[in-house]
Amino acid sequence: MNETTNQQLIRLKEENRRLEKQLEELNKKLLEAEAFKSHFISNVTNEIVNPFASILGLSKSMMTAEEHQKEEVCHLAGLIYSEASFLDFQLNNTFTAAKLEAGEVFVEVSPVELGQLMEEVLESVHPDQERKQMNINFELLPESPLYLHTDREKLKLILINLISNGIKFSDNGKSVRITLKVSEKNLEIQVADEGIGMDEKEVGKIFDRFHRADKRIHSLNPGNGLGLAVVDGLVHVLDGSVTVKSSPGKGSTFIVSLPESLSESDFFDEDGLFAKDEEQEFF
């Protein structure tokens, strides 16, 4: 009888310890979530409220323009456009990050023509590029029009994030080199900049949310530190991998590899199902 009571006591103690540990862990997670939230709010304030203020101010100037000031009005409209595009990109990144966080990102596959996609990508990074007078070199291998079956919007967001990152962390007048290489079973994207680069310790942290390699740069460059976390998340959703080579002062190269990005010709090859072929069966 005594023994059973003892055993029961031991069991209860163990149970107690387990629950305490659980509580501790939950507490830790709550604190983390709290820190994340305040960080998020301050980031959103910077990255969304500021462009909005610019847009409001600029459009007000436009409204009060005289009839002969067409040139001035065009200039202002250009500035508004560029602020609005930046805002659009930031919002897209923020929502994507939130969806990734909640595990609610789903892949929609469609045929994507890479050349055309790159044109759109380059157009959206153009304001940044012009502001910093950067060169962007773009190479697509092989050169012929290529259709891949992948998620267009996700691939686009990955590319824009990598390229604007390259621009952001480079000095004026430097170059960013983009190579898209399509092989039988994957698409390899390389984005190389001549920017400030990172040491090994920093490289390990860059895919964390809101991480910026150097706090000093934070004040000089726009961005909320979501970009690479979004890239990392999206690449994983698309079943790919992302790596980075970097050294301080010498720039960084981001390499994204996406599998199963198959060109249509792989499935409609001349010697394939439509050829007279003994192995082929009809149903």
Binding site: L273, F274, Q280, F282, F283
Partner: peptide
């Protein structure tokens, strides 16, 4: 298997 479905005739071709 690799299959191709002809949606006009309903025929399916298959290759292992």
């Amino acid at each position: 298997r690799k299959i191709v479905f002809d949606t006009l005739t309903g025929e399916v071709r298959q290759k292992y």
